[in-house]
Design a protein around this nucleic acid. Structure first.
Lengths: 159, 159
DNA sequence: ATTACTGCAAAGCATTTGCAAATGC
DNA sequence: GCATTTGCAAATGCTTTGCAGTAAT
């Protein structure tokens, strides 16, 4: 497990030292292996990134002494998401999904992880709070999107 | 402009009859052209779809008498979105964006259309309302994501 | 020893694009 | 007639996958 990490700034090392054991636990519960590549990736994730994309991360790790291949980066990021250490802000689903908005008041969506069903919901209070947040940040809203992921009632009952 | 539409159900024809003039206005303002293909696509969008993906739509229009090519479907869907007649629920950005969640309380994002900057914000009241909506729909939330698109303060000033 | 993981390069696949022909204005 | 659109097919580019070698248990 000889990962080169001597030049890490203090705060990064601290984050890694807290996050890594969590990932190790997760992997052991899953009977997956604690590997060098996984530690390198976790370290890089907690290093210089606020928001980053998978491909940039892969590029950063494609050379240098802590080399990890693209495929492994993608595979590990998926694991880290499952472990709750990383969050997808903007996901690339296979398809872009649309709906027509004509005669269709603003509403948001819940998507069932199991059956893929879209459930529509709306709440004016949420809309108002989002607007309020935009004002606070002097941000001119064009549109917003709220998606909740989880399990729908029917799929819940089947379990 | 000979679009075959004799077999459309009543309600679809009504929607099309209301939406099409809006699209025409939009196109004229933009000095773009009012074409047969654009009407076929709009009609199809308002026909049998609640939620649909670009590719399925393209597939449906790839044969039959109202034939439109894949490329045109993608191009027109973008125009319809610009016109506000269609909404993207789940977008395929070029990259998937991540962030690490460790020591990072739950928060949402605003993304600037102009500079691409991510602005973080959070509001517990929104979170609570989303949870409430899930209870109402008996939906077991795993996670949710709120993204606001628009223009940030700095880019606003430059205009 | 056994089995999972990694690296590599090739495959996948939705979307985009270039260009000649067709169509709207 | 002129400029924009379309259709087609090829290109693009992120992501996934197969497989043989390597590392973890």
């Amino acid at each position: 497990m000889g990962v080169h990490e001597e030049e890490l700034p203090e705060e990064v090392r601290e984050s890694v030292e807290e996050a890594w054991p969590l990932f190790v636990d997760f992997l052991k519960k899953k009977e997956a292996r604690v590997t060098q590549a996984r530690k390198i990736i976790l370290t890089q994730v907690f290093s210089r990134h606020d928001h980053f994309c998978a491909d940039d991360l892969a590029a950063e790790l494609s050379s240098g002494m802590n080399h990890v291949s693209r495929g492994t980066v993608y595979r590990t990021l998926a694991l880290m998401e499952e472990a709750g250490l990383v969050r997808v802000i903007r996901d690339t689903d296979v398809h872009a999904h649309y709906e027509h908005t004509f005669n269709h008041p603003n509403h948001e969506h819940m998507i069932c992880d199991t059956c893929g069903q879209f459930i529509e919901f709306s709440d004016d209070r949420i809309t108002a709070l989002v607007e309020e947040a935009c004002e606070r940040h002097h941000f001119a809203e064009r549109t917003h999107r709220i998606v909740v992921f989880g399990t729908c009632e029917q799929c819940m009952q089947k379990k």
